[in-house]
Design a protein around this nucleic acid. Structure first.
Lengths: 217, 217
DNA sequence: TCGACCATCGAACGTCGTTCGGTAGAATAG
DNA sequence: CTATTCTACCGAACGACGTTCGATGGTCGA
């Protein structure tokens, strides 16, 4: 079972979501295709459990961190760690907390983020909304930023900038009067870093949360 | 072409993402399977264009709205409208702005949201990050909340509460000392409304943005 | 009248998730 | 010691899917 999940995650990490087929996985395990169905009922459950397998690592990585006197700083560290795990595995976003019966580590991660919010002394409703918002932003943004452009996979390293530049040129050719915003940010877009972009948005969200915590006491 | 996209979206709206197959679409159109390939190169492009087809409607719906003296209120209206469109079509999240060459309406929507941020007089970098954050949150949360539980589809209307209650009971059976946050919010979770939850998070994000705008002038 | 182009299509190919029927060996019961 | 049950596994097949191929009328300007 652990071997199946480990090999599944390895396959996903190496070659992406499309590489995970029952046949490929069986070949890696040196067994037959149908054998996998003894461990999981179907592919969704395989990915549910693979998700939890990855989240166990995230939980581990956030174990030592997140112990300052600022709840929001601690929440931020956990969020960034989770983001890093998902951005390299965009498939994970669709399965995160999809079925917590087979995802105990997802529950524990949710709890750990919640405990930081708990320290803000908001009510149950605001606390629930706060954690939901942070998780929604982290998972959604990571899944979005993680999906690679199809042309890039075939080539090396520098092609990402080229890809962005190509898009930027497309934007620049639009009418500057009709698209003033696009023209303002096109240079930012062409040179942007995904992780920076994510963190900037996260900080906005946490600033809003800090404001709410301050005004409620 | 327009007939193909219209029927594709109708099929998706009626029966979900898995119902959109080239065979089913061809049957609806009263034609052959291979004919669709004259209009689009592959299924990804079909969904790229179907996405733009839907976004044209969103753009239309936000045309009259969003004209107050508060940029963030206007941005909020657009965000909520976009959310409503995606939460009923979770497949759309994965294709939003994936290939803007065939998604002109996505670009216009991006621009329209950007123009609200423009009124905050932030720099190019902060403006880019702000719009990226809002869109990431909206699309990610909508795609997440939109995916239906598998057991619910088979039955009627009231089963959603039952589904949530079943999950809530699972949470309640966990140790209260190890999971204090879960126990605090479990009642909120059991009775929560997806749209409320989304709006609460959106308001946090916009509050953070308002704070940034105020402090930068 | 003729070729160029538009729009269409049936049939086939390869791959995928999944199911079925079965089996070798270990554990357990009599 | 034997019979039965249970665990872990597997080859082969099924049906559905995205996609490709080669061919076919129909509509044109030349």
């Amino acid at each position: 079972m652990e071997a199946v999940l480990g090999e599944a995650v390895r396959l996903l990490d190496e070659a992406g979501e499309s590489a995970l087929t029952f046949r490929a996985l069986a070949a890696r395990l040196g067994g037959g295709v149908a054998s996998i169905y003894w461990y999981v009922a179907n592919k969704d459950e395989l990915l549910d459990r693979a998700t939890d397998h990855v989240l166990a690592g995230v939980l581990d990585a956030t174990e030592g961190l997140a112990a300052t006197d600022d709840p929001l700083a601690d929440l931020r560290v956990i969020a960034v760690t989770l983001f890093d795990a998902i951005v390299d595995r965009p498939w994970l976003g669709a399965y995160f907390m999809r079925n917590t019966e087979v995802q105990p580590h997802a529950l524990r991660l949710y709890e750990r983020m919640g405990q930081q919010v708990l320290r803000l002394d908001l009510g149950p409703r605001d606390s629930f909304h706060a954690v939901s918002a942070v998780i929604g932003y982290v998972v959604g943004t990571a899944a979005d930023l993680g999906r690679q452009p199809p042309a890039e996979v075939l080539e090396g390293e520098v092609d990402r900038d080229e890809f962005l530049a190509q898009y930027a040129d497309q934007w620049r050719q639009l009418d500057a009067d009709a698209y003033p915003f696009l023209h303002l940010v096109v240079d930012e877009f062409a040179g942007h870093d995904d992780a920076d972009q994510f963190r900037a948005g996260l900080d906005l969200l946490l600033a809003g949360l800090r404001l709410q915590a301050a005004s409620s006491r």
